Amino acid sequence: MEVRTIKVFTTVDNINLHTQVVDMSMTYGQQFGPTYLDGADVTKIKPHNSHEGKTFYVLPNDDTLRVEAFEYYHTTDPSFLGRYMSALNHTKKWKYPQVNGLTSIKWADNNCYLATALLTLQQIELKFNPPALQDAYYRARAGEAANFCALILAYCNKTVGELGDVRETMSYLFQHANLDSCKRVLNVVCKTCGQQQTTLKGVEAVMYMGTLSYEQFKKGVQIPCTCGKQATKYLVQQESPFVMMSAPPAQYELKHGTFTCASEYTGNYQCGHYKHITSKETLYCIDGALLTKSSEYKGPITDVFYKENSYTTTIK
């Protein structure tokens, strides 16, 4: 009895394709271990004539594949690729409408935090270190965002349907971005203890939790000093293409032309909904596939993004 075979390709990165001759009487799992086709788990399936010449994702289970996976995804987590594939199996079914010149995501599976993050990423200057993220990001900007969303979920250790947080998501993504040249110098002034300067680099240099107003941050924000008295913390120097200011959701007025974009969060910790506000020729609110415009805006804002380049204080 002759062994019926077909020729397929296996890959971990969709760049390096490895030619395989597979036995049609055995499952993919018996031949390769966990195997995925377009995100779908085909591990328990036997090869079919229609699979001839198709590319299958496999887990990096030998040295060659491990090197290829690390170079593309910059992670050695053995569960990463499987999590990416199972997320992709959902995100490829989502709709990605162009809204006001940006790629958004039609609401499904509690994905409003991903839509808000995706919209924000198209408006701030950011370059990702893992080629996987950078490639998928370019495709997302062009309207094909399924891979990018699935990668975000995998890097953030999230599953489809789980509630997510924009600030946490951005923080994970910033860790995989090139923020080497970003720098922030802060000064804390206390009447009792004097003053202390701190220099922050990388992710810490672009994120701040405690106030939404970048102007206020430049002037000074009140913080408790270690001595128990009130101290003032203010920005001395900022070198970065953008800054992200966050605070627990509270009524906040966004003035046209003073910011790049913002995240609105309605609801409580267990259950809520994100919308995205962007400042173009007027203010726009993007909620999944829905767009509304207004000249002014007041609502429960939790993150505001500002364009920056270089700032030095005039406070002496």
Results as ranks from 00 to 15, higher is better:
84 Y>I: 00
170 M>N: 00
314 T>C: 10
81 L>E: 04
54 K>N: 11
125 E>W: 01
311 Y>V: 10
62 D>K: 11
245 M>N: 04
63 D>H: 10
153 L>D: 00
77 D>V: 03
137 Y>C: 05
117 A>Y: 01
97 P>H: 11
233 K>Q: 08
89 N>C: 08
259 F>S: 05
58 V>S: 05
60 P>C: 15
78 P>N: 15
96 Y>V: 01
184 R>W: 08
36 Y>R: 02
79 S>A: 06
24 M>K: 15
43 T>M: 10
55 T>D: 01
120 T>D: 04
282 T>N: 09
304 V>A: 01
270 Q>C: 11
8 V>I: 14
131 P>G: 03
175 Q>R: 09
307 K>P: 13
5 T>L: 12
145 A>C: 07
174 F>H: 00
224 P>D: 12
52 E>N: 12
121 L>R: 02
203 V>F: 12
30 Q>S: 10
80 F>H: 02
56 F>N: 01
305 F>V: 11
242 F>N: 07
241 P>E: 15
291 L>N: 09
262 A>M: 03
12 V>A: 10
87 A>R: 02
18 H>V: 13
289 A>T: 09
266 T>I: 13
103 T>Y: 12
302 T>Y: 02
308 E>M: 12
36 Y>K: 02
144 E>P: 02
12 V>P: 09
260 T>L: 13
94 W>A: 00
128 F>T: 02
290 L>Y: 12
66 R>G: 09
281 E>T: 03
233 K>A: 14
220 G>F: 03
129 N>S: 12
301 I>Q: 03
24 M>V: 14
142 A>I: 10
262 A>F: 01
45 I>F: 11
16 N>T: 08
210 G>T: 06
211 T>H: 10
61 N>P: 09
18 H>M: 08
62 D>E: 11
20 Q>T: 10
202 G>H: 08
290 L>K: 15
240 S>G: 06
73 Y>S: 00
263 S>N: 15
103 T>D: 08
116 T>K: 06
161 G>C: 03
89 N>L: 05
166 V>W: 03
238 Q>S: 04
131 P>K: 05
202 G>E: 02
192 T>Y: 09
211 T>E: 14
188 V>H: 15
50 S>A: 12
219 K>T: 11
49 N>A: 15
141 R>D: 00
56 F>A: 02
50 S>G: 11
18 H>P: 15
244 M>V: 08
39 G>Q: 06
226 T>D: 12
180 D>Q: 14
39 G>C: 08
189 V>C: 15
213 S>F: 02
191 K>A: 12
302 T>S: 11
301 I>P: 08
19 T>G: 15
231 A>Y: 02
28 Y>T: 01
270 Q>R: 11
146 A>W: 05
247 A>R: 07
224 P>V: 13
300 P>E: 15
104 S>F: 06
156 C>V: 05
71 E>T: 10
253 E>N: 14
204 E>L: 06
294 S>Q: 15
161 G>Q: 06
316 K>P: 08
12 V>R: 15
197 Q>P: 07
108 A>R: 11
105 I>L: 03
99 V>H: 14
33 G>R: 10
121 L>H: 03
96 Y>A: 02
33 G>S: 00
167 R>D: 06
277 I>M: 06
143 G>H: 02
84 Y>V: 04
228 G>H: 05
14 N>Q: 11
250 A>I: 15
243 V>W: 03
241 P>V: 01
88 L>D: 00
207 M>A: 08
82 G>C: 15
203 V>R: 11
304 V>G: 05
57 Y>P: 01
272 G>T: 04
256 H>K: 15
37 L>S: 13
227 C>R: 02
123 Q>M: 03
164 G>F: 03
20 Q>A: 12
235 L>E: 05
208 Y>S: 09
7 K>F: 08
255 K>E: 15
187 N>D: 06
119 L>F: 01
312 T>W: 09
22 V>W: 01
130 P>Q: 02
206 V>P: 04
242 F>H: 05
190 C>Y: 04
127 K>Y: 12
101 G>C: 05
72 Y>R: 12
288 G>Q: 01
144 E>S: 11
186 L>R: 04
209 M>W: 10
2 E>D: 12
59 L>S: 07
34 P>F: 05
167 R>Y: 09
40 A>N: 10
310 S>D: 14
270 Q>D: 15
246 S>Q: 02
68 E>T: 08
243 V>C: 07
231 A>P: 04
303 D>K: 04
53 G>H: 15
166 V>C: 10
7 K>A: 06
171 S>A: 14
265 Y>A: 08
91 T>H: 01
57 Y>I: 14
143 G>W: 00
73 Y>L: 01
234 Y>F: 10
208 Y>A: 13
51 H>I: 00
103 T>C: 07
124 I>S: 04
217 F>P: 03
130 P>I: 12
212 L>H: 05
153 L>A: 06
188 V>I: 10
259 F>H: 03
283 L>R: 05
300 P>T: 11
54 K>G: 09
306 Y>S: 04
292 T>R: 08
111 N>V: 00
33 G>D: 02
265 Y>G: 08
249 P>H: 04
281 E>D: 15
131 P>W: 04
65 L>D: 07
293 K>V: 12
252 Y>N: 07
175 Q>L: 06
77 D>G: 02
222 Q>F: 13
256 H>M: 13
277 I>G: 06
191 K>C: 05
237 Q>K: 09
81 L>R: 05
110 N>W: 05
214 Y>G: 03
166 V>Y: 12
209 M>L: 14
151 L>Y: 01
241 P>G: 13
39 G>M: 05
260 T>F: 05
248 P>Q: 14
305 F>A: 07
104 S>R: 04
298 K>P: 06
106 K>S: 13
287 D>C: 00
125 E>D: 11
310 S>F: 14
283 L>S: 05
217 F>W: 02
152 I>N: 01
245 M>R: 04
257 G>H: 06
268 N>Q: 14
68 E>C: 07
109 D>V: 04
